[in-house]
Design a protein around this nucleic acid. Structure first.
Lengths: 342, 342
DNA sequence: TGTTAGCACTCGACGTTTTTGAGTGCTAAC
DNA sequence: GTTAGCACTCAAAAACGTCGAGTGCTAACA
């Protein structure tokens, strides 16, 4: 069967209406709603076709139709209309420039949650590929060394290192200079064994500690990496009854509480580079097990220097895709302009 | 009316039974349940008395009784029996010593949530009163200075400072030594204006930057202080239907998501020092608005050096108080032994 | 041939009534 | 003071009826 122009229009009307009301939509409603003047009977025939084609279903025999996942997909791919109204508004609302990236991202999550009324998550960019800006060793006491690492984007990581042999201030200073001259401007991935050996050689007596420090730097960078996800508005889930039924809400909230699972979403999104950078997962397409009843809209932001991260908006399948996409675009634009200025 | 021995026993039986089943408990149940061999009719008379005294109520005329807040209070104050069984077990389960305090506390929250099946929170200790162990200024680039502060307990705070006039390495080094010699071993609260003036004087040309740095130290210490609360097991709330009714779950989860409100609990608990260190808030006694339908059991931990914080367990009013208190005691004991060893 | 009016049919939502059973309070006897 | 017995209450569950939104199908119409 062919998907005629008219069927498309009807389909669009069905989705639009269902997004608004959340109620199954019947033929009479469409008959009045659309500009194509057709009686409800005609609409009924067309809807029967659309059902056969798999775009809509009836929850029960005598009810209106609701879109299937496939129906939503059709809508998202071919019928969405970005209005791009709120972009300007967002420009003003959004956060003054934060010195610290993590603060900025937290606020981003919050802003999106408030604007869209859905749950949001923002992953901190992976910083494997970020250049080291500063390494700072400091003696805390006789047996402990503080390792602070600052990378591009002013992300600060630190860890405390137990050392066996006491180091004097002078040695620490020397190590500092040694490490910085060799490693500054490099990324973690660029540090190879040859380099470490070279540094060790120059460190002389203290070669043993160099390896430990570099280890500490690496693990500080990796530390909690998969947990660096900021979420907001998880309770918005309660606004959508279809997500509260059974124990769905519990599972969803749990996913937001333990952020590990959200990481799959980040990984998947970063892997699937698209041109626009915005992706929509509907229902079962979701990479996250517990979100099979939701739709997820994600965007990849890129702050340059390989600092890429993911923003995700999670809501019911009948989410306002247009609005969400607009909001995401707005925020992306913001992040861009904040970071490109630097 | 007097609260006879027998009434006490019946009361205890009512509470115990209700904690287990969550159903209103009738006279017949008690008659069989307890060792005092009485017929249901007698129990009924006594229960009528207990109701008059305000310890129990009937949800409706022809139902069994459930404890009132006052009834729970009576139970908690005079009838609880610590079993202290699991303490040993916990000793093994609990976390290997973490170098970083925050990690330890996170794990504590998680452990308690898993063991009790309630929601938990752990506040990081207020570190106003902690001694500064190390201050470290480092030049990130021409215009930015990294300030790292380590305080007792190996809590690391940092912030980035914008400076107007470029400082050379030597100056930074001098400032480092200057600040450390003056401020090391002090707490934030002990730093007064006279001291700052003295340091400024010695700093000579760079006196202007000293004030900024000390400000940064202070604000790094305070930074997000009220947000330094770790929570776990918020979704356990869904296990108790009485907390899911209406929008209660949403509000509760919201409270856990935005941790600001939990801070009231911390403040209140730290203020109300009791001998045992364990406090129970039942229903309306709760300091947190949204938890009026819950009971909260809190404990104050003390790691020495003024590092005090709060652990809280939040569950339904019919929570297993005995078990919760035991668990808390166990964890407190653990924290103690971990930290006193140092 | 495509569109539409008309009609019988379906079935969930909702309100009312009935039934059931756990639990009570009271009374009278032990 | 305790207990058996009984009438009574009332929430919860089940059963029933009604309503109406929406459908599919048919026959007539343009």
């Amino acid at each position: 069967m062919e998907l005629t122009e008219r069927k498309m229009k009807i389909m669009q009307a069905v989705v639009r209406n269902y997004l608004e009301t959340g109620e199954p939509v019947g033929s009479r409603t469409i008959s009045k709603y659309t500009d194509l003047n057709l009686s409800s009977a005609t609409i009924r025939n067309e809807m029967a076709d659309l059902e056969e084609m798999g775009y809509i279903v009836q929850p029960h025999t005598s009810a209106g139709r609701i879109p299937t996942d496939m129906g939503y997909r059709l809508y998202v791919d071919t019928m969405m209309e970005s209005k791009m109204r709120e972009v300007e508004e967002i420009k003003e609302n959004l956060l003054e420039k934060e010195e610290r990236l993590d603060q900025l991202l937290k606020q981003t999550a919050k802003l999106l949650a408030t604007n869209t009324n859905y749950a949001t998550m923002v992953s901190a960019p992976s910083i494997h590929r970020n250049k080291l800006k500063l390494i700072q060793l400091s003696k805390v006491n006789k047996k402990q060394l503080l390792v602070v690492v600052v990378v591009e984007g002013n992300v600060i990581k630190n860890s405390i290192l137990d050392v066996d042999n006491e180091l004097n201030e002078e040695t620490v200073l020397k190590l500092n200079i040694l490490l910085n001259t060799h490693l500054n401007g490099l990324t973690i991935e660029e540090i190879n064994l040859a380099m470490i050996t070279a540094i060790k050689q120059q460190a002389g007596v203290h070669s043993d500690i160099v390896a430990e420090v570099i280890d500490a730097i690496a693990s500080a960078i990796h530390e909690e990496e998969d947990l660096e996800i900021y979420t907001s508005g998880a309770t918005n889930i309660f606004k959508y009854p279809e997500l509260v039924q059974n124990d769905k809400a519990s599972e969803l909230i749990g996913t937001f509480e333990e952020k590990e699972k959200l990481n799959e979403l980040v990984i998947k999104t970063l892997a699937e580079e698209e041109n626009t950078g915005i992706q929509v997962y509907i229902g079962n397409e979701s990479p996250v097990e517990t979100m099979r009843d939701c739709s997820i809209v994600t965007a990849t932001y890129d702050l340059g220097e390989g600092m890429k991260g993911t923003i995700g908006i999670i809501g019911p399948k009948r989410m306002d895709y247009d609005k969400v996409v607009d909001n995401l675009k707005g925020v992306m634009h913001q992040l861009d302009s904040i970071y490109k200025k630097e």
